[in-house]
Nucleic acid binder design. Structure first.
Lengths: 69, 69
DNA sequence: ACTAAATGTTATATATTTATAACATATAGT
DNA sequence: ACTATATGTTATAAATATATAACATTTAGT
């Protein structure tokens, strides 16, 4: 999974720490998410989307073969 | 969290078992999701959305106070 | 070059999702 | 009423997200 969190976060001049604080997780969690190293809960994903004013499908990008099985 | 999975699933005449099969989880997982009893992974949420031709934000409905903290 | 702040890394613990299995109830067709 | 299929329930195990803490590296400002 790829994500545009880092890009959007920069656009709003938010630090990882500040974004983490706003959505109620640890900064390390944001680091892992930005690296695409894990698959957040839907609730966390939606919270981040709201902070970054971006729809879920635009912030989190799945390759096609990642979704079918 | 509320969800319209059950409603949309009915619209497409899919059983829980068939939807589960298509998105690669157990039927029980669909049951729990339809009851809003848990917060799926983003990947699972997106898979279900694709099967039901519905954007994430329309299939999974969070109360406002559920997201801010 | 120094400093402070931001970002990245790693290891371990805890919480929550998901799998599995077995059974119970409901619904529809005959 | 019987049967098959769909849905719901419960308990336990396994997998994975997230928390926590401590430290390392990078970046920006002075």
């Amino acid at each position: 999974m790829k994500t545009r969190i880092k890009e959007l976060r920069a656009r709003y001049s938010l630090t990882q720490a500040e974004l983490a604080r706003r959505v109620g997780v640890r900064r390390e969690t944001i680091v892992f998410l930005e690296k695409g190293e894990y698959n957040p809960s839907l609730k966390l994903a939606v919270k981040i989307c709201r902070e970054l004013n971006t729809p879920v499908e635009e912030l989190f990008l799945f390759e096609d073969n990642e979704l079918d099985k």
